[in-house]
Design a protein around this nucleic acid. Structure first.
Lengths: 212, 212
DNA sequence: TCTTCTAACATACAGTCTGTATGGAACAGG
DNA sequence: CCTGTTCCATACAGACTGTATGTTAGAAGA
């Protein structure tokens, strides 16, 4: 994990440049996939936006789906990092009991899902492009683990009733995803946000051990 | 609505034949879309399976997406009919209170969603192929209405707490869809079914007015 | 019955897109 | 200085979609 500075001539310009083109491809693809969707976005459009040629694309990525996988991985990771940062900050400031903390976490999750790139790329296109198994593996790696360990802790602390973690995690994530899509689709985002939050809150009370 | 038997020569053979080719196209497309997905299925594959040519396809449908829309509409309608039949039958035989009836209905919904064609075509490919708005319109027409009116009745009867119907309907449908996908993906379907059903049951208790 | 018209296809073609194969330029290493 | 490898540009082949055109069988009118 330490930087190898003996053999390498302190970050060669070459490597820096290639990393640039790769990032340019990822950024361009992310924007276009989010705007027009996967199939409606040609590889020519992507490389034009990144100011390279198709040769660069197929040098860095196996094929178009591989590029999409990388883009979706970035999206998921960004989302995960954002959430972790936000929740750890909250956990330090306002330390309530585990149950209210978890409930607030879900509402934050709902707000965080309201990101067009994330919705289109991860939630809508992802399953169809990569197939359910590959999609699930990616989400498992980046997002589910956090939610799952949070839920496990809540169960251990007795905040919520014991339940199988696997289906619980996926079903809650799906619930929040759908709620975010509902909000995004609504004409009046404000009331939609309030309504969806209310329904989410009600459903979550079913998990609570106390029922409150 | 009465059959026109004066002008028409009692169901022309011609019309019968064209309806046959249309159905053949729909059946073939449904099978292939469910097996390989939308993009991986060429129009040539479809017409070969239906034993017609591409000319027939583009005569009956505007384009490939239009064919998919028709296929998904059939899938959704089949599912809705199956569920309505099943639930009305149960409502007659075992008449419990509205709350238990609704809970049992959700479990039946969960079982009914365990259909490979339905899962792949309606739940996975649908949103990506048609876009969220067109997909939502189709599901609204065929499936959501039933669920929504059932929920409205439950609220009117006081079984569950008053809640905005729109997000509630979509979030519950999404919850059950995800649960069915989880079951289908699991190695051990039996335990997965039991676990998902348990989680679903717990979440639904949050809706109950009594909290039981 | 004969003609005519149109629906219901079949076929051929053009445009687009993806993936690959080839070629070259720059840089590292011996 | 020479060589090999990385990185990328270009050219090409295959596949696929949608459309335009041709063809045939049945319906409709005289």
């Amino acid at each position: 994990m330490t930087a190898p500075r003996s053999t390498r001539s302190l970050r060669s310009r070459r490597a820096e440049h290639t990393a640039d083109t790769r990032r340019a491809l990822l950024r361009a693809a992310r924007t276009l996939f989010a705007e027009r969707g996967y199939t409606a976005t040609g590889t020519e459009d992507i490389v034009a936006a990144a100011q390279v040629t198709r040769g660069a694309l197929y040098h860095h990525f196996k094929d178009k789906a591989d590029l999409f996988r990388a883009v979706m991985g970035d999206c998921a990771q960004d989302m995960a990092e954002r959430l972790v940062e936000q929740e750890t900050a909250r956990a330090e400031s306002e330390s309530g009991d585990a149950w209210t903390l978890l409930r607030h976490g879900f509402q934050s999750f709902l707000d965080a899902c309201n990101d067009p790139d994330f919705q289109r790329i991860v939630l809508v296109e992802g399953p169809a492009v990569l197939g359910h198994s590959a999609w699930d593996a990616l989400v498992e790696e980046h997002g589910y683990v956090l939610l799952a360990e949070e839920l496990t802790r809540a169960i251990d602390e007795g905040s919520i009733s014991p339940m199988p973690i696997g289906p619980l995690t996926r079903m809650l994530a799906s619930l929040i995803s759908e709620a975010s899509l509902y909000i995004a689709r609504a004409e009046d985002h404000v009331t939609a946000r309030k309504e969806a939050g209310e329904v989410l809150e009600r459903l979550l009370t079913g998990l609570s051990r106390t029922g409150a």
